[in-house]
Each structure stands twice: as C-alpha cells, then as structure tokens.
Design a binder for these strands. Structure first.
Lengths: 213, 213
DNA sequence: GAAACGAACATACCACGGGTATGGTGCGGC
DNA sequence: GCCGCACCATACCCGTGGTATGTTCGTTTC
C-alpha cells in the first residue's frame, strides 16, 4: 500500500508553514458564513470545509467558536475604521465634518457583514461589555472623538461626550438596519439621511440659538 | 405491579385540564432563564424542569424553541406597552409628554428581561423583519404615535415619522443598555437622562427658532 | 354507562454540532 | 540524524433540539 503522497486532504493540500494564510482563510470563511447564516446557523465543520481544512486546524488557531467569531468581528471592524479615519482627515468645518462622518458610517452599516456580525450578533455572542470594549479603539472611537471636537468648539453646552456618542451610534446602526431590511432600500436610505441631516440641523440651530442668548 | 397512582411525575403532579396554567408556567420559566442565561445558553430541558414538566409538555404547547422565545418576547413586551400607554394618557403639553414617554421607556429598558429578550436577542433569534413586525403594535407603536403628534402640532417640519421613531428607539435602547452594563448605573443613568433631555431641548429650540423664521 | 376519542402530558430515541483527545507529518534547530 | 514542535487530520464523546410513541384521564356519544 504505497499510494505515494496523495493523502485524502480536503483537496489542494497546503504544503506547510502557511499557518497565517490558513488562519486568514478561516477568518474569511467565518465572515462570509456568519454574515449569511448567522452565528448559530453556521457549523464549524462548514467553516473549516470552506477554508479547505478540517476542524482540527480551526481548533489549532482558535480557542473555540466564540474566539473565531471575535476574529471575524475584528476583521470587519477594521475596514470600517479605516474608512472613517480617512473621512475625518479632511479639514472642513466641524459641523460639515460631523455630517460626513455620519454619512460614511451609515454607508458602512449597509455592509451586510458589518450589520450582522458587528451590530446585531456582536453583543449577543460576545456579551455587551466585551463588545463595547472591542469597539472602543475602532469605529466608535472615531465618532466619539468627532463629538468631543464639536463640544470643545463651543456648541453642545455641557453634553456628556461618551453618552452622546453612544446615543448617536445606536440611532445610526438602527437606521442602517432599517435601510438594509427595507423592501425599497433606495427610498428609505434617502429618507433616513434626510431625517438625520434635519435632526442634526435642528440640534445645530438649537445650539446656536442657545449660544447667542 | 400495582403501585397505585404515584407515578414518577416531576413532583407535585398537576391534575389535568390546567393546560393554560402549564403554558404560562413555561413562558414564565423561559423569560427568567432567557434573561439570565440567554437564548443559546438555555436548554429546553431546564426550562421544562423549572416549570415542573418535561419537554413533552413544552412541545405540546409550542412548535419549537423559537416559538417559545416569541411567546416570552410577547409577554415581556406587553408589560412595557401597558406602562407606556398609561403615561401617554396624561394630557399635558406635547413636548412635556414626549419627555415623559422617553423617561418611561428608558426606565422600562432597564428591566433585564426587556433588555436581553426584546432588545438584544430579539432581532437575532426572530430575525429583524419579524422582530420589527412584532413590535409594531406594541411599545414602538406608542413612541411612533407620540412623534406623529409632535409633527402634526407643527414642530419637526417635514420629518419622516416612521424613520425618526426608529432612530429614537435605537438611541434609547442603546442608552439603556449602557446604563445597565455600567459599573455605576446611578451616575450613568442621570448622565444619560440629562443628555437626552438636553438633546430634546436643543431640537425643540431649533424647531421653534426655525418655525419663527 | 361504557366505549371511543382526543387533549395533555411523559418517555425513549435519533441526529447534529461543539468540543476534546489523539495521531501523523514535515520543518527548523542542534 | 534525531528531536521537538508547529501544524493539521481523525476519531470520539456528550449535550441539546427535535421526533415518535406511549400513557392517562376527562369528555363525548350512542
């Protein structure tokens, strides 16, 4: 029984020392499957199969299913973070910049992966505390900083920054969910942006009127 | 082998024809366990045991685990709905009433059961669409109506009601989650209410300033 | 009034999926 | 050249959702 080297690997046997590549494959596979079928609806065997490995490899790189989920979470979050950071680099008027960040974040929230993994299943799978901490230095940090700038510039007298940022994020993610699940995303999207811009305008008008008095 | 009537029932054998009571027991048990251990972390056997029955009884009253979850969801939602309805019955100034509703909803969101079952796990377990529909006639309906009144009264020029209501709910539920998971709920709660009231004030000021022009 | 019927459960069993224990293989270090 | 470890596959265990079937007892029907 010689049969040479053709072991019954999941196909296209990877040689060796490609550990990080394997890890990335697993994360990509997890992101795709968690996005379409959810955390509970995706088995580890299927994730591993899509990455052309077995559960053994998976458990070599990750402690458990939750650990893999967190890796997928981070991967998705980092992309959005990069986009927001780029928008924030433009040096316009603070209020204008706030509008841009809001617009960009709304757009990011439309990504199915971000929506399901980060917004919806994140707090359930990871637990809210851990979910919050994981976002601290990423997309949420950007939004919080924007609001802090706004406050420092004089508007928003005495508004607690952290809390307000959370409120804004909550509202926006809800909005994005609404858009994504709408039968007519185009229309709802415009309506939502309109509403957000209007509200932002009202707050600005209120802040200025109050500031003048 | 006579042994009389003493069957090995899960203790305290219920006679018969107490079907609705059994159902309620199961729902109460589910609410309690889902609240503390989450949907995935709670087995049907444990739920049944707490209700002093077996899985057989559970599957007689509910199609599957998800069906039981929805029953628990409805039970929790109805309580909050009743409270909101009561607050809305007071006939004060519309803006004052809006403030009261916001305050009451925030308070309701602090209930661990409402927080975990309705806000967090609801959309994940039931799917967002179904979750949205299930809330339509309950707590969300109350908030949407309040905003509709506000708009009809002249303020909030041309704001889309449905969308705005979703934004408000999203922000408030996020706020409540933040409060509940804070190491110092008392302080964060006050801070949050302060922020919400301030923002509401800003919007009102903006609306009035804009309305005067 | 007893036989038939069905609601309201209990019991026994299966399949699937997360997790573990163990085995194998090739590369780097000495 | 052999040792050890990273890297991964295979085999297995067990908790859990779901199903199929059995059992009891009140209600109905003739």
């Amino acid at each position: 029984m010689i049969m040479a080297t053709v072991r019954a690997r999941p196909a296209s046997a990877r040689k060796t020392r490609y550990a990080s590549a394997t890890r990335d494959d697993l994360v990509r596979s997890a992101v795709a499957l968690f996005t379409t079928h959810g955390y509970a609806g995706t088995s580890l065997d299927v994730i591993a199969a899509r990455a052309r490995v077995t559960k053994g490899a998976l458990y070599h790189h990750f402690r458990d299913k939750q650990d893999l989920f967190e890796a997928a979470f981070s991967a998705v979050e980092k992309k959005v973070y990069a986009k927001l950071k780029k928008v924030l680099a433009t040096s316009e008027n603070l209020w204008v910049k706030a509008g841009l960040v809001v617009r960009e974040y709304l757009q990011s929230c439309l990504d199915p992966a971000y929506q399901r993994i980060v917004i919806h299943e994140g707090p359930v799978v990871m637990g809210w505390q851990r979910w919050r901490d994981a976002q601290e230095g990423l997309s949420f940090g950007v939004i919080r900083d924007a609001i802090a700038d706004l406050r420092a510039a004089g508007g928003l007298s005495g508004l607690p920054v952290e809390v307000t940022a959370r409120l804004v994020c909550g509202a926006l993610s809800t909005a994005a969910t609404m858009i994504a699940n709408s039968p007519d995303p185009k229309r709802v999207s415009e309506e939502t942006e309109d509403a957000v811009v209007r509200l932002l305008g009202l707050v600005r008008a209120g802040a200025e009127a109050q500031g003048l008095r």
